[in-house]
Design a protein around this nucleic acid. Structure first.
Lengths: 207, 207
DNA sequence: CGCAACTGAGAACGAGCGTTCTCAAAATTG
DNA sequence: CAATTTTGAGAACGCTCGTTCTCAGTTGCG
């Protein structure tokens, strides 16, 4: 039982898997999915086709793995943003749009992977469409958690999610991160209006 | 100069061109662009490949023609919506979201063609990316026109545009038209807040 | 040491892509 | 009517796709 050797090969396999996912994510994101063949993936990752198909039984499986990883990354970003919002759930919600602004500034930003993939594959790959739908639903649910803590009605969460989605596509197409700031300003108005409406005995501020 | 015959053939050519565009639009929209080959276009439109290439010198030219037509259709819908808004520019802005709600209800609704196409081709076809960028910019400019008439600051137009974009992708992925109503409610809040903030002493100038 | 199993890199496969070509039928012209 | 041009439908081309196969080299094990 060469356990050391086995551990080493297993570790290597995991590293190679990560390298493949890195490469696939980068190429799919920058060029679109159909435009990136398995050959290009082999060339850019340095992993042979046979190995690729050992790790992922099909291109669709690889796409799903890439999306799953992006989902984890996205969830981490959202949680980090929420953690940044210091005290109030209001700040936590607004921190999400600050996170978006930073993301939009990245050089290779080209919109939301899930939206892009839905546009390209949503009509022909139901399994992937479902995965994307679930991802977006879970983001809305997470927003709803925080919204609930503010005491505002749940409909605010849907509005805030729409702002986030719109900011992503607008920023991607326009090539600027202005949309993040516009979305943040809109979110501020929506949140404060909802909070004011929900506290009838409180004096409406904004003098 | 058989002018009658020439007119007839010209007319027929235009009808055939429209048929090709109809088919291309439908197939591209429902399946994505890369997934639809010229053969599929020939089969579904009944127009031979030679004729297709007479009408459009390349697939990219056909894609651009489809996008141009969608842009005209979109502009007509927006203008019709604005015309529906009875008196005030506020109503005109909100009517855009009613238009969206109707659109989302269509059976084959699968999001915004421009957003979908940008995700699929934006990274590799700069000419198409530019066309999409210009389309979105012109929509924002149109909203800004109406926003200006309300007397609200121009930043409101960006916020409303982001809501519209977010509603389109959200509705497409979720498969419901709820997003249109959430976006409309959010738009109402944003507009009325902007108007209230902008009218401490103002006389409304609408005649 | 010798044999069986496994690995790697890349060739190869069938299918589908965008595009062009063939060639018989139709239309046009003197 | 005969010669010429224009058209149509689809076969064909070269390429790339996702996937599988080949086969020389390496490893594991009695």
């Amino acid at each position: 039982m060469a356990s050391t050797a086995r551990n080493r090969t297993t570790l290597q396999a995991e590293q190679i898997r990560e390298r493949v996912l890195d490469t696939a994510d980068r190429l799919y994101y920058s060029r679109g999915i159909h435009a990136v063949g398995m050959d290009a993936l082999r060339d850019e990752s340095g992993v042979s086709l046979k190995r690729l198909y050992q790790l992922f039984p099909s291109k669709e499986a690889l796409i799903e793995a890439v999306l799953h990883r992006r989902r984890r990354v996205w969830n981490r970003l959202v949680e980090a943003a929420i953690a940044t919002g210091r005290d109030t759930p209001r700040d936590q919600l607004l921190a999400v749009y600050d996170m978006l602004a930073h993301w939009f500034d990245e050089d290779d930003f080209r919109g939301c992977v899930f939206i892009n993939t839905f546009g390209e594959l949503g009509g022909t790959a139901p399994h992937i469409a479902t995965l994307i739908r679930e991802h977006k639903a879970s983001f809305q649910a997470r927003l709803a958690d925080v919204v609930t803590k503010t005491g505002a009605p749940a409909t605010l969460a849907h509005q805030l999610a729409i702002l986030a989605e719109g900011a992503q596509t607008t920023a991607a197409i326009a090539g600027t991160n202005d949309a993040a700031h516009h979305a943040r300003a809109a979110a501020t108005t929506l949140i404060d209006t909802a909070l004011a409406a929900n506290r009838p005995q409180a004096t409406t501020t904004t003098g």
